[in-house]
């Protein structure tokens, strides 16, 4: 009996490393674990405007980067500037009187920024480079945008307000950096992501 217990303990410890498992972390109600073993569903965040991602990204089929313009050219993906919202919405009369749109125009009229809450908030010392990931997987490897963004952000196109769904922990980052990814959509050559501390830690 004791031998079996010891052996079991040994294997648990020995293979927990190899199996890339992360210790169980409380992240939401039971049953909300994501399929890849990361119990990582974040809390529901109250935003100043309940932005309907599903309407824009799923129903209208707008590319994520139409609004999040920084993702392809900078470290941060950028919360869209308000004139971006206004640019479209001033000519969409049908929803002009919806409460959310009214609120948007209130901010615009007062020239005040909307105090969005950060949902996918990494620690301050981590530098996640959106540009490199988008360039590599969206532009170079030609994968669909919802898959590329969704790998970290989840299926935002089916959400209203965004909610964190992945652990965003260091081990989780490395689990992907460790994999061999095809270099582009035609070549079979693969390479993995960088491991160096300084790539992400600043």
């Amino acid at each position: 009996m004791i031998h079996r217990l010891l052996a079991a303990m040994f294997f648990v410890f020995a293979f927990s490393g190899m199996a890339n498992a992360e210790p169980f972390k409380w992240g939401g109600p039971i049953g909300s674990q994501t399929s890849d073993g990361y119990n990582a569903l974040g809390p529901v965040v109250q935003q100043p405007i309940e932005f309907p991602h599903y309407r824009h990204a799923r129903d209208m089929g707008i590319n994520c980067m139409y609004c999040h313009t920084g993702a392809r050219r900078g470290y941060v993906s950028v919360i869209p500037r308000i004139d971006k919202c206004i640019g479209c919405h001033q000519s969409i009369e049908s929803v002009r009187n919806k409460p959310r749109i009214k609120k948007l125009f209130w901010y615009w009229d007062h020239k005040e920024p909307i105090p969005w809450k950060k949902v996918n908030d990494l620690p301050d010392y981590v530098r996640f480079n959106h540009e490199r990931h988008i360039q590599r997987f969206y532009f170079r490897q030609n994968r669909p945008v919802r898959e590329v963004c969704g790998y970290c952000h989840g299926d935002v196109a089916n959400m209203t307000v965004d909610r964190r769904v992945k652990a965003l922990s260091m081990g989780w980052c490395i689990s992907c950096h460790e994999k061999d990814h095809r270099e582009n959509d035609v070549s079979m050559k693969t390479s993995h992501g960088p491991y160096e501390c300084w790539q992400c830690h600043k």
């Binding site: 010392y125 960088p194 160096e196 501390c197 300084w198 830690h201």
Partner: peptide, 17 residues
Amino acid sequence: GATNHTNDGLNSQNYHR
């Protein structure tokens, strides 16, 4: 291992480690 070598020959120093 807070300080180690990067591929581009730098001696990195990771403050958080």
